[in-house]
Design a protein around this nucleic acid. Structure first.
Lengths: 246, 246
DNA sequence: TAAATGTTAATGGTAAGACCACTGATCTTT
DNA sequence: AAAGATCAGTGGTCTTACCATTAACATTTA
């Protein structure tokens, strides 16, 4: 006998799929108001609970925005929300430290390269400003300000790539990363001599971008990240398995 | 008067947060069975519907697996599921073609570089096998087989990086990409002379990886992707804004 | 005894109905 | 015309109920 198993697809998945298709073919554009939960339930011949579970899923993925008392709207997909599950994952998963850090390195190196090619005068000014804030933080011995302007420095480089997607992806990874290893990161700034080293490295990166030298920019960025990786790995008492892009 | 707004957090979000914390601090390990929906509802003093919405969200993000009639289990987070929202987004978003393709290029170039450093003999054999299948497909004039082995070739390179996260992210982007531009991709293989060019490029990439030359591997990969980008852009009648990593 | 079979309690899946708080537009009053 | 009150509609939540599936247990059978 040659029977095929009967597929018992969950209702909410079908609802998600129908809405997804409407978004894909353009019937539902960002800003559009969706039918109310009650109307959807009636049209699809399902319970309101099923509709709500589908909308919950779409909300989690950042495709719709649900306003209590107002209605449900197709969201202008910025991309930030799509990445939320990734951020949550990083807060839980500890094992794949170096795999993820490697991806961050790939992004940052590429960002430095592209920034050297495309940075506008405004971009350059922002990068330099963050570098100066770092230096000031060091003389003031303000490690918190130092970390903040460090992150801002990297952010402004990603901005200078003119690639919004690269900016968002890199930020998500970097943010989640900095949170999950905040201890090691703090140590990075409290070790004698390290702040000066870090500022030297950042200065070199900035100069390479300013001089529109993509190769040097990516090289200095790699050196900086590898140094930070090694220092943090020492604090965390784990050994990096690979050495990227040497 | 200095009042702080009373924040009406949605109940399901609080449920998600509580479970997330239990996962983060290790109280809930992969494989563990969660309390039943009814028990959770009673313990948390909320309705079963709210518990279900929270579990739906966790399921969408790939953190739990829900078996009808069986129970809810903490999932061994493979990472594939975390990326699902990204895949769904790519199927909808059409505008940022070159931004996304640039990210793909960044990944593929890095993958080629790392593969040249880390490929095992087994990896190399797989890469070569896919290359041979491409050649065979060309002589047989089987464009479908050609596209398939092309994708497999790139996949096997990503595999050789030994970085599971890079593999998953790259696959998600590449898959969504190939689907959304299937027309242009087909044209890429039907244009006279192109198959031969593509095979030459792939051969160069393979040889660079085989010879453990990361710089050359990344250079040949870049040339290949830039060529494909230009050809597809011509079919789609759009002009690339940037030229990456030249 | 051990395997196959039947039973049953627990679980997730779905539905229906109800009530609340909030939103936004309309209507009323000033 | 502006301010306030009204009200229908919406999402948020809870309750109850029943179904289909699962898995453990009890029973039967060879």
């Amino acid at each position: 006998m040659d029977f095929r198993p009967i597929q018992a697809k969950k209702i909410y998945e079908e609802v998600v799929e129908q809405i997804r298709q409407l978004m894909e073919n353009g019937s539902l554009k960002p800003g559009d108001k969706l039918l109310s939960e009650r109307e959807l339930a009636e049209k699809l011949q399902v319970s309101r609970a099923s509709v709500r579970e589908a909308l919950r899923a779409l909300e989690m993925m950042g495709f719709v925005e649900i306003k209590a008392g107002g209605g449900t709207f197709i969201k202008e997909t910025s991309g930030d929300d799509i990445i939320q599950p990734l951020a949550m994952f990083l807060s839980i998963e500890k094992g794949s430290f170096f795999e993820i850090y490697e991806i961050r390195k790939i992004f940052e190196i590429a960002a430095a390269h592209l920034a050297a090619q495309r940075a506008t005068p405004g971009d350059l000014a922002r990068i330099e400003e963050n570098l100066e804030r770092m230096k000031a933080a060091m003389t003031e011995d303000d490690s918190e300000k130092g970390e903040g302007s460090d992150a801002a420095f990297h952010f402004s480089i990603a901005e200078a790539t003119q690639n919004g997607w690269l900016l968002r992806l890199l930020n998500t990874i970097a943010d989640s990363f900095n949170k999950s290893i905040s201890v090691a990161r703090r140590q990075l700034y409290l070790t004698p001599g390290h702040p000066q080293l870090l500022i030297e490295q950042h200065t070199k990166i900035y100069e390479a971008i300013r001089d529109k030298n993509p190769i040097l920019a990516q090289k200095t960025m790699l050196e900086h990240l590898s140094f930070a990786e090694g220092a943090m790995a020492k604090t965390l008492k784990i050994e990096p398995e690979f050495q990227l892009l040497t």
